[in-house]
Every structure is written in structure tokens, then in C-alpha cells.
Design a protein around this nucleic acid. Sequence first.
DNA 1: ATGCTATCGCAACACTTGTTGCGTTAAGCC
DNA 2: GGCTTAACGCAACAAGTGTTGCGATAGCAT
Lengths: 216, 216
Amino acid sequence: MAAPRPTRQFPDQPLPPPGPRATTVSRPGGRSSSVRRRVLDAVRTHLAEHGYDALSVDAVADRSGVHRTTVYRRWRDVGGLLADALTEAIDDTWSPTDTGTLDGDLHAVNREVYAALTAEPPVTAALIAASFRSEQAAAALRSFWADRYDRCAAIVHRAVDRREIPAGTDPRRLLVAATAPLYHELLLLRTLPDPRLAEQAAHATATAARAGAFTD
Amino acid sequence: MAAPRPTRQFPDQPLPPPGPRATTVSRPGGRSSSVRRRVLDAVRTHLAEHGYDALSVDAVADRSGVHRTTVYRRWRDVGGLLADALTEAIDDTWSPTDTGTLDGDLHAVNREVYAALTAEPPVTAALIAASFRSEQAAAALRSFWADRYDRCAAIVHRAVDRREIPAGTDPRRLLVAATAPLYHELLLLRTLPDPRLAEQAAHATATAARAGAFTD
DNA sequence: ATGCTATCGCAACACTTGTTGCGTTAAGCC
DNA sequence: GGCTTAACGCAACAAGTGTTGCGATAGCAT
């Protein structure tokens, strides 16, 4: 006979878009652009200074000078804040460096992954941890990774063009094989970071690719 | 001039061992073995029925009939509960199945990993999520994985003995390369589960191993 | 300038989580 | 049987987290 517990939510707005709001469009009474900037700045600085564990909606609100209620209304939870901060921080001009060989290209990508996963403070790890609790953070991460893997497909195409690996090689499978060991070791198994990881995973994957292991 | 915030903890006991307590040793006044069984049963059933998000110390306490305070004292948090439930559920007799080929052995292991990661309810995913917030859960997972990778080294040794792959192949690197793509796709990238993942990752890794990609 | 209104600030609340001191209970030992 | 003592139950508290209604305000339009 337990009460249904109505899972309360803010009824005011239909979950307002936390994404970049058009600044020139008609929004009478809106102060949102200024608020958003202050909040997102607070997220970044607080994350850098005190880490993920200390990141709460209240802490961000206090630091930004924006009221708790406003942050809860627009971002819902910490995951929403991180998601918005991520999408804003994305570099739209990013592309994988061209070293001339598949080994080299994969190694270059893996060095970036390695750097991101061992960065201090661990913002990437924080975002991934948050993605297990917040659908917003999970969605933001998925779209970020989808974009990066799409761009990295160029690496595979270049290798095919050089006749280094067979045509019909699946870019995604190859790229996941190359990068996944880094995430696994550094994030899940939590072994002490070894910079050779990046090169070893890149080399093993390139070897498998040359043998045609990523074609159907 | 902010107050140091003394990070309060229970002073009663020096963090009691949540592990299996010797039942025959002198523990005057202790009712611990019965309590532990009731609590761990509650963790399992509650996890199975309501999932990880609904798993809280209070929920487990209510269900088990054991008082909140007792659970907090002995297990500290949800991560501690999951860690204890995991170590109790571990099958000490597990060993990798011998199929006769490296491809087959890796495929068999990967099928188990795949099954664990796609199980409903997602207890493995729950444990991994918890490991980002609880040091106890993280430690339990690390030791579990360390044990499994040690046992799986037999796969690599068998392949070396069969002259399938070169001697000097690093078992751990090989095994991580084989399994990591599953964790990455199913847990992080969260693509819709594809059973072929297990076979593809196994085959690609075996190919790389035959080419000597996992030797120094 | 004046009005409109979405957004924000504010106070107050409810629920969850974690902690403490202290009295009570049950397991083991004589 | 009674004694000892770690483990437990209990009430009460403290802090963090999430929610609500309502009044105030800033940005835009006219």
C-alpha cells in the first residue's frame, strides 16, 4: 500500500534546452545568455580546482552567483551541467593528424586519448562517471564520440588508399580496437598509467588490420 | 576562514571487515553472520527487482530488516554492499574453456563478457558504475579482474605451446586487446548490442597475436 | 518611455543520505 | 545458570539534494 511517490519535477518549463541559446532571437525577460556563461565558467573552474567529487549543483550555483533554483531548472543535475560544458568545449575544427602511416596515425590518436584519460584533474573520467548516472551526460558523450570516430574514419581511408590495408575494412571496428584498450586499462582496470599503452595498442591494431582482420 | 569540516565518520569501529567473517571465532555479542546473510540477500534481490538506481543503503536496510545504522557501520555505502556481494558471488573454480584454438578460446571468454555486460538487470554495469564512486567497489572489481586475467593467461600459454603464437607474447596485453572492445562498445559507447562483437574482437586479436604484435 | 513576459531570485519545504551517543541484545565462555 | 562484550537497534540530529509557488527583474518590442 506504498504511496506511488509521484516523482516530482519542475512543471514550469518543458525541460528547457541547456544547449546554446540563440542570443538574437526574441526572448522577452530573458537573461539566459549571461546566466549560462557564468554557470558554465563556474563548472569549469570548480572542476579544475576541486575535482568531480566536489562538483554539485549547489557548489556551482554559489560560485557563479546564480541561484540554486535556476540551475536546477535549466540543467536538472550535475550531469546536465557537464554535458553542456562539454558540448561548448568541443573543438569543431579537430581532425586526426596525418603521419603517413596507419601505425603513426593510430598512435597519434591514442596519445590524445591517453592524455585526456590521465589529465589532472580528471575531467574526462569525471564526465564518463557522470554518464552512468545522468542521461544528459551520457547523450552528450555519445554524440561527442560518434563525431570523433566519424572524423577518424579518414585515417582508415588514407590507409586503404595507400594499399596498406584491404578495402572493405570497417573503420569503426578498427578504431574501437585501437582505442578501447586505453579506456579499459586506465578507466576500468586502473593500472598505473604507462605511456607505452598508446603505441602498443596502435601497433597491434594496425597489424591486425593489415592482415584483414577488420573486413567482413 | 571556512570551517575545516571535519569529515565525520563512525568512530565506533575501525571500519569493520565487510568480508566473510569467521563464524567460529570468538565474537561475544556478535550476531554478524545472520545479519550479513540477510543484508547480502537483500542486495541481490533488490538489485534484481529494481535495478541499480533504486539501490540505496536505506532500501537494503528496510528490505533486510536490519537497521540503517548497522548497514552504514559495516558497509559504509552502496559500493561497499556491492563489493561484498561480488566477492561472495565469485566462483573460485572458474577457468577458461579449452576449445583447441586461440580464436575459439578468446571467443568463449568474450561470449561470457558479452553475456555479463548485456545481462538484465545489468548488475555488472551497476558494479562498474559504483566503482567510480566507491573505493571499496573499485578495489573489489580490480581484484576480481586481476584474478580472471591471471586465469585466462592459460589461454595464451596453450596457444604458445601449440606454436600458434610466438613465445614471449604478453598474456595480459593480448587479453585486454580481446576483451576491451566489448566493454567499450557496450558500456561506454552504448551502441545497441551486437553478438558478433565477441567473435570479431576475438578474431582480430588472435590475428594480431599470430603476427607477433604482443611481444616486446 | 512604457508594457510585456520569460527568466530569475527567494523562502520554504520535503526527502535522502550520513552520523552520533547510548541503551539493548545475543553469542560465546565459564 | 550467569557474566562479558562485540554487535545491533533506536532516536535524533546534521547536511545535502531536489521541488514548489510566487513575486521581482531584465531584455525586447512598440
